[in-house]
Design a binder for these strands. Structure first.
Length: 299
DNA sequence: ACTGGATCCTGCCTGC
DNA sequence: TGCAGGCAGGATCCAG
């Protein structure tokens, strides 16, 4: 579910409540999500201060004062919401907290009871499909953990450019769609933003990834535009607070609105939005997943 | 070495 | 109206 922009949005929403706060109690309402919770999970988290909350690809990373880091992945349907103690000053929270208090109950699996700048707060992890997972690892070498060791570069900032793409895609026979979804190459893209980026770049999702690289390994003419469209779509989605499909919300309960900007994702049958293109958006299946594209202007 | 498929799970939507 | 089948933002494992 959540791709990089959604996870980034969640991170920004949780940061004010988590960073600097003490976890007074970690409440687990079931023994596992996708995987069993770590050994002595609650004991290792209770009483610790969250010193920082960051994001790597689609993972949230909460640094704890113990030196461990709590790694959280939202899978397909994970989300967080914040509940504040009644005693808190409602006025000061008005801008960051405006959802219906303590309502949803089903599939609330983990509750972080916190005490911090905003007084007592609860951060609740909800995940109907339970594809999400949480893990505790040593902070200082967390980049070496299997989750992160082989992870590719972030698709934001200047790190991703045409030359980098050329290096990653050289000799790759897999379709562009699969290559862009491969977290070992670029980490954080998912089905939505891959479809959108390929559309904006005018490249067919079915085209061999290596075909946009010159024989000598240098960037072909499509490499830089593709890199640019990837950075662009991710950046715009973050600005919009991510995409709210189904019931996905930001941590403060508000909805992201990038879904209104989808040009191809879930737009089957609609006319291509590009001027001078009279194509119609189609859906096909690649590696068992839906790809949306314009067969006319994506080559 | 790569690639596609199956798999984990619940909910929602469509069509019969 | 009910129910079966398909589909959903991810990532890993396994067979070919």
């Amino acid at each position: 579910m959540p791709e990089l922009p959604e996870v980034e949005t969640v991170k920004r929403g949780l940061q004010p409540f988590m960073e600097g706060a003490i976890v007074t109690k970690l409440e687990l309402r079931r023994p596992n999500l996708r995987f069993p919770f770590p050994d002595k999970f609650a004991e290792r988290v209770n009483g610790e201060t969250v010193t920082a909350l960051s994001r790597r690809a689609k993972y949230l990373v909460a640094d704890l004062s113990s030196g461990e880091a709590l790694i959280m992945h939202l899978g397909m349907s994970g989300s967080f919401r914040i509940e504040l103690d009644e005693a808190n000053d409602a006025q000061s929270l008005h801008n960051v907290f405006h959802h219906d208090k303590s309502k949803a109950v089903k599939h609330d699996h983990v509750v972080f009871h916190l005490e911090g700048e905003y007084g007592k707060a609860r951060i609740i992890y909800n995940d109907p499909r339970r594809f999400g997972y949480m893990e505790l690892i040593e902070r200082h070498n967390f980049e070496e953990h299997p989750y992160f060791a082989k992870m590719g570069i972030e698709p934001i900032g200047n790190a991703l450019n045409g030359d980098v793409i050329a290096g990653l895609f050289k000799d790759k026979k897999a379709p562009l769609k699969s290559a862009l979804l491969d977290q070992r190459l670029i980490a954080g893209l998912g089905n939505i933003y891959v479809c959108e980026a390929l559309y904006s770049a005018g490249l067919s999702p079915a085209r061999q990834a290596g075909s946009i690289v010159k024989k000598n390994g240098k960037a072909g003419r499509h490499c830089e535009p593709l890199a640019q469209e990837i950075r662009n779509v991710i950046q715009r989605a973050i600005k919009a607070g991510g995409s709210s499909l189904k019931d996905h919300r930001q941590a403060d309960g508000s909805l992201g609105y990038f879904q209104h900007s989808f040009k191809v994702y879930d737009q089957e049958g609609k006319p291509c939005a590009k001027t001078n293109c009279n194509g119609v958006i189609e859906r096909m299946v690649q590696s068992g997943r839906s790809t949306f594209y314009c067969p006319k202007c994506q080559k």
